[in-house]
Design a binder for these strands. Structure first.
Lengths: 208, 208
DNA sequence: GTCTATATCCTGATAGAC
DNA sequence: GTCTATCAGGATATAGAC
């Protein structure tokens, strides 16, 4: 099968995905437009045809994938077939996937890097991604409290203890990405499942 | 009082502290040697007299402060006057201080940024800082388990749930450093105290 | 130890042909 | 939309006087 011609939007998406990889590897300032162009197989001038500049490209990278990630959690939160306990368990599993594995989730150190230079990037990351994510999770907990499945907890405290471990795991796996024994030091599935157990215990819904 | 002459080692320390601030603000690649020299009130050439290059300076910044941070926790872990519960509570408080407020703790996004370029920096951060920190905390928990004050828990799981929230808090406060309502979104003391409560609950030592 | 001056390379970004 | 060629500025790093 021969190489398919790409539509403009697909080509833009390809550039975004390629440059996101590079940003994640070398940081924002450490990734040059030349390097991105080369990785995309085009010249710098062509790259500048698609994006107004490095800042605009970076912002596109950060924004890309917000909705897909949020939709995944929304799918669980809105599933009428599931009990609150199942919803929470499934939602946290998806959040681990998003935070630890996906590009959106792995972006946090990059946001920190540019937070002073592009405060608006941090703002949008917070309002368009972090806040909706927290709200979706909290919706599940609130429902469980209302139905009597969960006992009342403080919202900020619960978010702190839910997102904290998975964010650290994501950060640690970026920091120590070159370790050959990364999975031994930071095993995602094992830590995630134990974490879910503790959260259900907190909500007074520990054992079956 | 007139400006005191600085010893060579103090001058080096001053450069390290000044450049650490800049690295934290703009990242590694985003901070130039010119900017560092200017902030230190010397020229680039003088800066290169003290450090072999940007890499060496950065590594000095990361390494600087390991011991001071670890000594603080060791002081609590070794205090014979305290009960295991008090030790744990005090240690976590100190860990919050270190992780959220101190330069060493705030370095994580920087390590992530350079993790592929300088894998040895990540290695040393892990072996000289992260691992000793985990070991000191675990020593407290083990003692509590041995004395019957705490019930047995899994080491990795406990570390995941202890360090996770504080690391995320540190990262979030870096990411959203420009927010005027930062303390409202991420209040350190409140989240920390609630977190300690949950940890003690996990260890079966919840209420007095 | 600090300076001025400079070397060398790479950066983000653009002009204009095809 | 992609290319070659080019710009002005900034990057790391060094040479050599004081």
């Amino acid at each position: 099968m021969m190489e398919q011609e790409l539509s403009p939007v697909d080509r833009r998406t390809r550039i975004i995905e390629t440059s996101t990889e590079l940003f994640l590897e070398k940081g924002f300032a450490g990734t040059s437009m030349s390097a991105i162009a080369k990785a995309c197989g085009i010249t710098k001038a062509s790259l500048y045809h698609h994006f107004d500049g490095k800042d605009a490209l970076f912002i596109a990278c950060v924004t890309h994938g917000y909705t897909a990630a949020l939709d995944a959690i929304e799918g669980v939160a809105g599933d009428a077939e599931l009990t609150p306990k199942q919803k929470l368990s499934d939602a946290v599993k998806i959040l681990y996937d998003i935070t630890v594995e996906s590009n959106v989730g792995r972006m946090s150190p990059l946001i920190a890097e540019v937070s002073r230079t592009f405060p608006n990037v941090a703002r949008s990351f917070h309002s368009e991604y972090i806040e909706p994510e927290r709200a979706l999770l909290w919706k599940i907990v609130e429902e469980g409290i209302a139905s009597g499945d969960f006992k009342p907890v403080d919202q900020n405290q619960f978010a702190h203890l839910t997102f904290g471990p998975m964010v650290m795991l994501s950060l640690a796996r970026e920091m120590f990405a070159t370790f050959e024994d990364l999975d031994e030091h930071f095993p995602v599935d094992e830590l995630r499942d134990g974490h879910i157990g503790v959260l259900l215990q907190m909500l007074g819904s520990a054992s079956d």
